[in-house]
Design a protein around this nucleic acid. Sequence first.
DNA 1: GGGAGGTCGTTAGCAAGAGTAATGACTCTT
DNA 2: AAGAGTCATTACTCTTGCTAACGACCTCCC
Lengths: 148, 148
Amino acid sequence: MNVMMNETTRTARSGLAEELRISVARLSRRLRAQVGSDLSVTQFSALAVLERHGEMTPSELAEHEHVKPPSMTRTVAALEAARLVARRPHATDRRQVVLAVTEPGRALLGEHRRRKEAWLAMRLAELTEEERAALERAVPILERLSRS
Amino acid sequence: MNVMMNETTRTARSGLAEELRISVARLSRRLRAQVGSDLSVTQFSALAVLERHGEMTPSELAEHEHVKPPSMTRTVAALEAARLVARRPHATDRRQVVLAVTEPGRALLGEHRRRKEAWLAMRLAELTEEERAALERAVPILERLSRS
DNA sequence: GGGAGGTCGTTAGCAAGAGTAATGACTCTT
DNA sequence: AAGAGTCATTACTCTTGCTAACGACCTCCC
């Protein structure tokens, strides 16, 4: 259409923020609907983060997930009730609590990952290799957008 | 690391589905928290879709947003109460209702778009041109993932 | 030492938004 | 014209986010 602009040289179009916002919101809603698991997306995300980062306090976890501490309290309570996360007292500060993924939690994590990837993986498989490569490049950028 | 694979030739890594799922969920949660508007993300998305697609019935809108009709009823009710959407009877089927964005709705849409893009646009501006281009390529793919 | 004030986690209560089930009005098929 | 199906809505529940407030604990400073 426009010979002066191509994909690699144009700057951010004014619509990019809006398009990204809407497509992310929609895909998120779609994904949530596909979770055929006994763990919610929020719980799974918290559990996965805890596994990746090792031991964390509830506040650290809340900050990482960009959620307020009371919300994380509820998420952690659910995970703890399911024996997927264990809490132990902090070594020196008795106000704090240290969370860690239990062995059953780790096992369930792998199992759930495989199950819950099914829907998305099926759809990813329908894409061309170039499209998947484009998503691979986008994922770390999306991660960075939600930090900062 | 692996000289046999590079970004363009590798197939979908097993982790892509999971990474994408988590990063999309997190960014979605982050975006939702940034909406300083009187319209929720859901309402805005429905209004935007309605503007883009022209007139639609509530069921069509619900299907497009991958939401059940009762949920869309509530969203539409809120939009109608704010005079952003108008409903009129279907020409031939009196069970159905036809929805359309009003002129104030259209105006508000543009205004809100500019306002609500602020957070994301700021973060997009911090990226390199290559990273933005990567997101530009990813957006239509994300869109396609949430359809089908 | 011993308060004053800050921090961590939790509880309580509220709001948004999604779901299922059921209903009322209407259309279509036979 | 009557039974079956469809569209939108209502009623109710659930999840998950938030803010406000609190109790337990730490730390700083006199």
